[in-house]
Design a protein around this nucleic acid. Structure first.
Lengths: 198, 198
DNA sequence: CTTGACAAGTCAACACTGTTTACTTATACC
DNA sequence: GGTATAAGTAAACAGTGTTGACTTGTCAAG
């Protein structure tokens, strides 16, 4: 039940640096997506790509370099922050329900799954900062945009984390429409410029 | 700069199963807390406890057994759900600001740091379910208590996760009082029985 | 006091990980 | 055609968690 798929006739192949690099990258993305970063070994990626293990470190420095390059090319919010700011919370809520609760993006899975490895922190740090928090903060008006954006992102990440642990089957069972409604209210509270007094 | 501290005269020690077990447990808790589960090897725990590596597997089945036992004896909400339900959101907000944003509990750190290892999922799953989500849900009135509790827990976990990645320096820099106020509103939205229409 | 038995503790090995070094081999240019 | 150089490889290194066979200490029975 293993996958020795070398994708091609393995020995008789022209030597093409760029093509080999891409093949490793594709294999890594596929395996990381389906099994998670920590669960896929360098040797398995190499075998899947029909390539020697040492090439991973030759072309990407280390295993973490693979993840870094994959994540860097992954879209996060596909055009959610653009559009009417008034309905931004609802769009984010729908994104959570339809993407984070189901499958979830590679970025998110990778983030949650590798949050324990300090080696990978800097990767996620930069990516979250530049591709998630900052764009969201920029789409807001008023003061404390960074804080408000961070709170909303926290919620999204936390839901994904709980979901991954399969603790919140209740969320999955809950009606989609109702959940979107609830999340919209919560995200509005996260993004609110001034917290209304009790 | 290493720690060969065997804690005692290493060779001339009486053979006491329970004492040895406890010493391993204490060493593991100390190291896991300060460096994280994945970063501490079995051999280092054994050396720190002045004990042979094999005893870890003998007494705890595997490394994950150590974490399971440590987490099981760790208090999560020290009596937060008890008390006036009206001010529960504020108490949770204060807990987040003073514990999650600062250091964070061992449970939380362990959860975030080991969320990538499927071997550990079941541990956190059970613990989160029984010691966090369920008690919080039980303290709520009305319908959908599980969903509402899960949403609040998601927020708490997400904030801890972002904090760990040091993305949200903005949250740490933000005034404590203001942050508590903001979080109180958000948690109220999470725990609200019926989401108020826009 | 001596002798077993059994538990407590040890050692060496296993299969695996990511990474590196020295090596071979194919390609492209003169 | 010969050769420099890049592409690709094999083998080893140090590390991980885990396991089974082994030694050794302790304590009760004869």
């Amino acid at each position: 039940m293993d996958h020795p798929d070398t994708d091609d006739v393995c020995a008789g192949r022209v030597r093409d640096k760029e093509a080999t690099r891409q093949r490793i990258l594709d294999s890594a993305r596929e395996l990381f997506t389906s099994e998670g970063y920590a669960q896929v070994s360098s040797r398995r990626i190499a075998a899947h790509a029909g390539v020697n293990v040492a090439l991973i470190n030759r072309y990407f420095g280390a295993k973490r370099g693979l993840l870094a390059e994959i994540i860097a090319n992954e879209a996060v919010f596909p055009g959610i922050v653009e559009g009417d700011p008034a309905t931004l919370p609802r769009r984010l809520a729908e994104y959570i329900v339809h993407h984070t609760l189901g499958g979830g993006s590679l970025l998110q899975r990778a983030l949650e799954q590798s949050a324990g490895d300090p080696d990978l922190w800097s990767i996620h740090q930069e990516r979250l900062e530049n591709a998630v928090v900052q764009p969201l903060a920029d789409s807001l008006d008023g003061h404390d945009t960074r804080v408000r954006a961070s709170l909303a992102v926290s919620l999204m990440l936390g839901i994904g984390l709980l979901r991954r642990l399969e603790v919140v089957t209740s969320l999955a069972e809950y009606g989609s429409a109702d959940l979107v409604e609830r999340l919209t209210r919560i995200i509005e509270a996260c993004l609110a410029e001034t917290s209304p007094e009790a």
